[in-house]
């Protein structure tokens, strides 16, 4: 069981992700934008952060850039993005994001990837 923070402005998708991961037995927390996510991350610790890239205000990459460097060395971030161009992937790697998943995805695809990430 892991503590996971899901950051996505799209409410329906956020709920779908949360329900899927809760069914897998994880403790799941939510934030609806980057600012809220950073505030939560300042106070609590998580085993994995799932970040949507395109959000109003801060993008997922911007959120990752502002996250604690030490934390990022030991914990994974998973980016949800509709962009799969190499330049975007490079940009997210630079921001310290090792994993990404292209939207749209199926809930069980996500569950499998999260399992793999947590096992790694």
């Amino acid at each position: 069981m892991a503590r996971i923070l899901v950051v996505d402005d799209e409410e329906v998708l956020r709920m779908l992700i949360m329900d899927t991961l809760e069914d897998e037995g994880h403790d799941v927390f939510e934030a609806s934008d980057g600012k809220e996510a950073l505030a939560i991350l300042g106070n609590e610790s998580f085993d994995l952060v799932i970040l949507d890239n395109m959000m109003p205000g801060l993008t997922g990459i911007e959120v990752a850039q502002q996250m604690d460097e030490e934390w990022k060395k030991n914990h994974p971030i998973l980016m949800l993005t509709a962009k799969t161009q190499q330049s975007d992937i490079d940009e997210s790697k630079l921001a310290g994001i090792p994993y990404y998943m292209a939207k749209p995805f199926s809930p069980s695809q996500l569950a499998l990837l999260v399992e793999d990430i947590l096992d790694a």
């Binding site: 799209e10 329906v12 998708l13 779908l16 395109m54 949800l80 509709a82 939207k103 749209p104 809930p107």
Partner: peptide
Amino acid sequence: YHFLHSIKGTASSI
């Protein structure tokens, strides 16, 4: 743009 982007990213997942 955001409206379409959201639908594109979410609809088929559900």
